[in-house]
Design a protein around this nucleic acid. Structure first.
Lengths: 111, 111
DNA sequence: CCCTTTGGTAACAGTAGTGTAACCCAAATG
DNA sequence: CATTTGGGTTACACTACTGTTACCAAAGGG
């Protein structure tokens, strides 16, 4: 369970730090929360509306999340230009944790 | 509870995003976890040993955490050069959430 | 038929974050 | 007395991240 100081003493655990770094990248949590709350596949345009960031950043983050298996991309159009994103089943279990985190932050600001 | 998209439609909520940004900065969570686990004030040297980052970054992050009231700095020496850090009472309630997050990441890597 | 929307990507430039090195002072250690 | 350790800060260079712009292709509305 010692995640702290793993990266400099136990190289086999580097995946833990990688994943944590991805999650703490700028809009990762927002993207995951949007997907979780909608509870059905979201379009790129949905994310652009709901996540305050540029297309470039959203696109890059989606790729990283997909590469780590947190998010799946489903091409649905016949021409291959329409796609939807959703969080994977495993990632669903992360949602309540993120919700708690967001709530904690929210409560703290309101005092 | 709508934290997503607050920053571009509700300027009064900017503090929420600020705090979330601080928490998702590189070593914030690690520092808070070290402090929580030790359950007594930690020294700068402790953090240097347990958090894989440079003095500069740890110092900067501590200042930011202190500025947001998540961490307190207590000067204990008579000469003013010995200090200890600890998380505030309010922040204690964040610990279980962070622990869950760390555990989730840990479990996921182990599959 | 044109124009907007959707769904992106690539290149580029500017900004933000990071580590390294150097330095400061005080206290402890040899 | 000299060196090391603790507790940092500052300056600087390097890296990483971000947004802007431009662009592409397909679909749909007026």
């Amino acid at each position: 369970m010692m995640i702290i100081m793993t990266s400099n003493c136990n190289p086999t655990y580097s995946g833990v730090d990688d994943l944590l770094e991805l999650l703490t990248k700028s809009k990762s949590l927002h993207i995951l929360m949007v997907m979780d709350r909608k509870d059905k596949p979201v379009r790129f345009s949905d994310l652009k509306k709901l996540v305050d960031s540029s297309s470039t950043t959203i696109s890059r983050r989606l790729k990283e999340l997909e590469a780590h298996g947190l998010v799946t991309r489903n091409v649905i159009g016949d021409a291959g230009n329409v796609s939807e994103y959703s969080i994977t089943k495993d990632t669903k279990s992360l949602s309540p944790i993120l919700q708690s985190l967001f709530d904690w932050v929210d409560d703290r600001i309101k005092q």
